[in-house]
Each structure stands twice: as structure tokens, then as C-alpha cells.
Design a protein around this nucleic acid. Structure first.
Lengths: 136, 136
DNA sequence: TAAGTAATGCAACCGGGTTGCAAAGATTGG
DNA sequence: CCAATCTTTGCAACCCGGTTGCATTACTTA
């Protein structure tokens, strides 16, 4: 368990510390994205700044990606193995307005858009709001 | 000038006060979306809370809509006359990572998405990041 | 093992957003 | 035209997510 997570960390050039293993474990268990404040609640004893920096490190090394679903705090979710966070890896996110959970819809790529003249595309953020299957 | 804006306010059931006329004027002049902090800078003498409530009122009455482009503060832009902020009125937004301006791409509707089973759609937020025509 | 580097914990701060409350302004019924 | 009422404004304070500086601890490696 711990070993397998370590491999993921090492692969992304992240030194596997106890803290990082724990955070990665939570991110792995969780099927929906998690925010810093949520993480703080999970680890009452851990320091906010440490958790914050852990997430930042994970994000920087592309182990996780951030999602701003407009509901407040930014959330984070694991990237797929093959993901390098380029435009072609981008998928749609779903935010449930009832339970406030945010899902990665990995199987739904963001549709391509033709922009007006002289506008160039770097990235796309697409969040669908609605009610999720669990809340129906 | 003032008269024409007043008509817009009255049409949306907003009592036209001096403050509201001024804010609407700025929103009308501006071709890109504007945030509360930006508005505060424009009106040094006006109170933050008043500006805040003005925007909230405008939004509630569907004179403007809010855009969270992920760059920090929420921005606001005028709705089109016919807009009622329903799913079919939704358009793509463009955020320039260079000048930080956010554009309404009224002519580009948000693409429709087929969600997984038992997920229902209420709204969509689609923001394209890139470089705008002015910054090219 | 000592020196150097990286991670952690603590505290404080910042900025956007939001609210309570009192004062000022607009509205309306008598 | 005035009094009572409702609305808007201004001020202050607060909340919360995010972020940083700095000292301490843990780890690495020469």
C-alpha cells in the first residue's frame, strides 16, 4: 500500500515523506476532488501550510491537477498515469450542486472551440454544474 | 446617456440610483468583464459594500452575469438584452493570461455534453485561457 | 559525524467576499 | 406637507482560503 504510493511519488520526482504518503493515500481513496480546507479537516493534527505545500508540490510535479468549480476553495484530484496536463489531456469536471462533490469525467474530453481571430488557446476549464448520480 | 441606462435598470426592476447608474455606465463602456476590486479602484470614494451589493443586485435581476475565470476575484459582465441566464444563453468566456482581461464570447455557445448516466445538467462554465488579440 | 539541504510547524498576513447596524435618502399615505 | 415606512448607503468588522517568513526538525551525503 505505502510502497505502491511511494512508487508514484518517486516517479514524479517527489521525495516520499510520511505526510506526502498520507495525503496521496487520501487523494487515491477519494473518488472526488478534495480541497485544502477538506484536507485540513481530515488531518486535524497536520499544519495547514504543510498540507498546502504538499498539494502545491504534487501539482507542480503533475501528480494532481487543480479544479476551480466556482464553489469556493480550489479542489485537487489525481492525474491519470499518462497525463501531462497538456490541452489534449484536459477533461470535463462535474460539480454537484447538492453534495458539493466534484468529479473528474476523464472519459469526456473538453470539446474543441474555434476562437475569434488572433485569440490563441493555451488551456480550457470546463465545469458542468448539476446533480450527481449519488444525489439523484 | 443617463436616461438610456435608466431604462435598462427599470426594465430589470432596479431602482435607478446615482451609484447604480455609475456602475452600469462603467460596465457598459468596458468591453471586458470587471471585478469588485477593479470597480473599487474606479470609484475610490465609493464604499466596497455598496459596490458589492450593487453588483449582487444587478446579477440577481439578470442585468449582469458573473464569471469565475480562475484568476482570483469573480468578474462581471453585462448580459445581452434577451439573456435570461438559462443554459441556452450560456456562452464561452476567454481569459487572457497576459493582460488578465476576460471576454464574453457571445457568439460561441457552450458545446453540449453528454453526461454519465444519472448525472443531470443545470449549468456549464467554460473558460478558455490564452492570449487575446490585443496582446498578440 | 558534521555540514548542508529539504521538509515541517507556527505565526502572521493578505485579499476577496460578506454581514450587521446605524445614518441618510426616497416613497407614500394621511 | 409632514410623519411613518422602506430602501439604499457608508462604516466597521469579520470570515475564510490562500500564502509567506522564519525557526526548527529531519534527512542526506561527504
Amino acid at each position: 500500500m505505502k510502497k505502491s504510493n511511494d512508487r508514484q511519488l518517486i516517479k514524479r520526482n517527489i521525495k516520499p515523506t510520511a505526510m506526502r504518503e498520507l495525503v496521496l493515500e487520501v487523494l487515491t481513496e477519494e473518488e472526488t476532488a478534495i480541497s485544502l480546507p477538506e484536507l485540513e479537516k481530515r488531518f486535524e493534527k497536520a499544519d495547514k501550510a504543510t498540507l498546502y505545500r504538499t498539494l502545491k508540490t504534487f501539482e507542480e510535479r503533475k501528480l494532481i491537477h487543480s479544479i476551480d468549480d466556482g464553489s469556493g476553495p480550489v479542489k485537487y484530484a489525481l492525474c491519470l498515469e499518462k497525463c501531462s496536463c497538456e490541452v489534449e489531456d484536459l477533461h470535463v469536471h462535474f460539480h454537484c450542486t447538492k453534495c458539493n462533490k466534484t468529479y473528474c469525467l476523464h472519459e469526456i474530453p473538453v470539446p474543441s472551440i474555434s476562437l475569434p481571430k488572433d485569440f490563441s488557446l493555451e488551456s480550457v476549464n470546463m465545469v458542468v454544474q448539476g446533480i450527481c448520480a449519488n444525489c439523484e
